[in-house]
């Protein structure tokens, strides 16, 4: 009863609030006015931030994202440490929420199981190009260059685990978002990033062990 009274008392004030006031207003039971103020703030920020990714019904999309983000903010208000303004922290959560939904939509027809890796049988050159030169036009490879490429492919095949090859293929060759890969692997983004990091480290070490200079290789392949 006392808590409810205190909450009602705070509706006399309007935003801007201090972080302490926001925490008090958004903690259970949350203050309706403050929740609406934060929702409107999120909507106003999300529109320009997401407009280039949404081709239709931006207003409705942003309203839905703001609503879902708001629930996350309320559920996690106790974790806010005050390293920034509360509104910045909330907007960070909302932006991630919106982009996650968009990534899911954009990639929902792609399965990481179906992606061609660097050792795919179809060596049309497309995969070579993506692996070695970030998608620039496929160069005509000389015999020596082709040998180098095959050596690196062998290293990728022999040094990395299946999981590491899978994430490297999806993220670094086919440019899938980490978020999407994580969801398809039933894990989280941090774990997928760690898999990629471990794979990069392994490859770097193996290149050193085998005396391969990747910089030189890149220069050779691009004809520099």
């Amino acid at each position: 009863m006392l808590r409810w009274f205190n909450k009602n008392k705070k509706t006399d004030k309007k935003a801007p609030y201090t972080n302490e006031e926001w925490i008090e207003l958004l903690s259970e039971p949350p203050n309706g006015q403050a929740v609406q103020e934060l929702r409107k703030y999120l909507v106003r920020g999300l529109k320009p931030a997401l407009s280039k990714y949404v081709d239709r019904e931006l207003d409705q999309f942003v309203e839905d994202v703001a609503q879902d983000a708001l629930l996350k903010v309320l559920d996690n208000i106790h974790t806010f440490r005050g390293d920034s303004k509360l509104t910045t922290w909330a907007m960070k959560i909302a932006v991630r929420e919106g982009l996650t939904v968009l990534r899911r939509k954009r990639w929902n027809n792609i399965s990481i199981e179906d992606l061609k890796g660097p050792n795919a049988d179809d060596d049309s050159g497309e995969i070579f190009s993506e692996v070695f030169s970030s998608g620039s036009p496929t160069p005509e490879l000389t015999a020596a260059q082709k040998m180098m490429v095959e050596k690196v492919q062998d290293i990728i095949q022999n040094v990395l685990t299946d999981k590491q090859r899978k994430v490297i293929t999806a993220i670094m060759i086919h440019d899938l978002p980490v978020t999407v890969v994580a969801e398809q692997m039933n894990t989280n983004r941090n774990n997928v990033y760690k898999l990629v990091y471990d794979a990069r480290k392994k490859l770097k070490n193996e290149f050193e062990v085998q005396g391969i200079n990747p910089e030189e290789m890149l220069n050779n392949l691009s004809g520099e």
């Binding site: 390293d83 991630r96 070695f132 983004r189 941090n190 990069r200 490859l203």
Partner: peptide, 24 residues
């Protein structure tokens, strides 16, 4: 991809740590 491999450092942070500090 090779550039990313070359640039690998001993100390890197993951997505969670980055997200944690992104607002500040």
């Amino acid at each position: 991809m090779l550039r990313a491999v070359i640039g690998t450092k001993e100390e890197e942070i993951g997505c969670d740590d980055c997200f944690d500090k992104l607002d500040s």
